[in-house]
């Protein structure tokens, strides 16, 4: 043993094993009697998204493009993930489909339009998982506005239900309102580094 180099891995694991040695360990039962499911209430989602200063629009799927046309300036550029349904985009905007767009172009766009993977009504949260209608994480990060189209069947009531629907191996972004800070005198300021405006279009 003398003179043998000990890897940091062995050292750390050895220390932790030594720390636990000797103690009597009754296995810990985790009580899971917290709520797993809740009653789904779309009004609650809308209320909680709004409470965190997201703008919510409830329209029929056929009206998504018109809604986006109202939100975005005519002639604006919109970053679009490759799998976004084309019918969602109004003719008034210029779509930049992501075929490996560089960060400068993404950041200079007026908005990004994405779909969503899951939403949580109780917390007012939308989750993106990088599916083709949501795209790379950078797409929903650099533009100043994020328009997220959400279908009612993607909404669950509780956090446990959301985790059960998600695939951990995908890159996940949980979004609850626009970027915000309260670091200066605890005064809430919206829009620090992420999109300063979040629009959620909820379709049946």
């Amino acid at each position: 043993m003398v003179g043998r180099a000990v890897s940091a891995r062995d050292l750390v694991l050895g220390r932790l094993r030594a720390a636990l040695a000797g103690g009597a360990h009754t296995p810990v039962e985790v009580p899971r009697d917290y709520r797993h499911e809740g009653t789904l209430d779309l009004d609650q989602l809308v209320e909680r998204l709004t409470d965190y200063r997201a703008h919510v629009h409830r329209v029929a799927e056929a009206a998504v493009a018109d809604t986006i046309a109202d939100i975005l300036p005519a002639g604006g550029t919109v970053v679009v993930p490759p799998g976004l349904p084309p019918a969602w985009l109004p003719p008034t905007v210029t779509a930049l489909s992501d075929d490996g767009l560089d960060n400068a172009r993404i950041g200079a766009a007026d908005a990004v339009v994405t779909g969503a993977a899951v939403a949580v009504a109780e917390t007012g949260t939308v989750v993106l998982d990088g599916s083709p209608d949501q795209g790379r994480r950078v797409l929903s990060l650099l533009p100043d506005r994020h328009v997220c189209v959400l279908r009612a069947d993607q909404v669950v009531a509780t956090v446990p239900e959301a985790l059960a629907r998600l695939t951990p191996q995908r890159p996940l972004t949980w979004i609850s309102g626009p970027s915000a800070t309260s670091d200066i005198e605890l005064i809430r300021v919206e829009g620090v580094h992420g999109p300063r405006k979040l629009h959620v279009i909820l379709v049946p």
Binding site: R48, Y52, V120, E122, T123, G124, T125, R137, P168, Q169, R170, P171, L172, T173, W174, I175, S176, G177, P178, S179, A180, G194
Partner: peptide
């Protein structure tokens, strides 16, 4: 109820 952003990656 939830912080504005949570990132998860594997």
């Amino acid at each position: 109820r939830m912080n504005p952003y949570t990132s998860m990656w594997t």
